[in-house]
Amino acid sequence: MIYFILFIEFFKIGLFSIGGGLATLPFLYDLINKYGWITSEELVDMLAISESTPGPIGINTATFVGYKTVGPLGGLIATLGIVTPAIIVMTIIAHYFMKFNEEPLVRAGFNGIRPAVVGLIAAAGYEVFKISLLNIPAYVSSNNLLELFSLKALGLFVIMLFGILKFKKHPILYIVLAGLIGIIFKY
């Protein structure tokens, strides 16, 4: 039964996450809120691993969540779930409309979808921000706003963001660098 749920949930993600890579993130958040299969921290760690290992990010995260839920077979089922809608939709498109992306109605629909996808990813980013940069338990117990922010974390965030926007190197480089800084300065 759990395999069936896993397949259906990832089938839904495959069907509605449009625009690649990070587009699956808001759906994964929705999923863990619903089922609690993994924690938010694990999701963020998993995202970092998915960006640093070979293969499409969406497939890596599906395999990871599936594995965490019910073991290796879960990883396989989740991955099959996420690719099945793509196989069906792309086969139809490859067969019938080669110029799919030039259809006026398709273009109009995507005029709406694209900005919404940016909003969805921003929302997922905000969730990751809360987990990674804010210390909510400390703030709740002390009620001191200063406890909410860790200067150490904010400092690393600002430096990394600057580096990423300025030098535009591959994400792996920044991930490895942040890992090393994390070890050295005990984040």
Binding site: L22, L25, E41, V44, D45, L47, A48, E51, I121, A124, G125, V128, F129, I131, S132, L133, A153, L156, F157, M160, L161, I164, P171, Y174, I175, L177, A178, G179, L180, I181, G182, I183, F185, K186, Y187
Partner: peptide, 14 residues
Amino acid sequence: HAFGGIRIVVVALI
């Protein structure tokens, strides 16, 4: 500790 740092860079990448 490594993932403590990595989670922060994930926010920057997003």
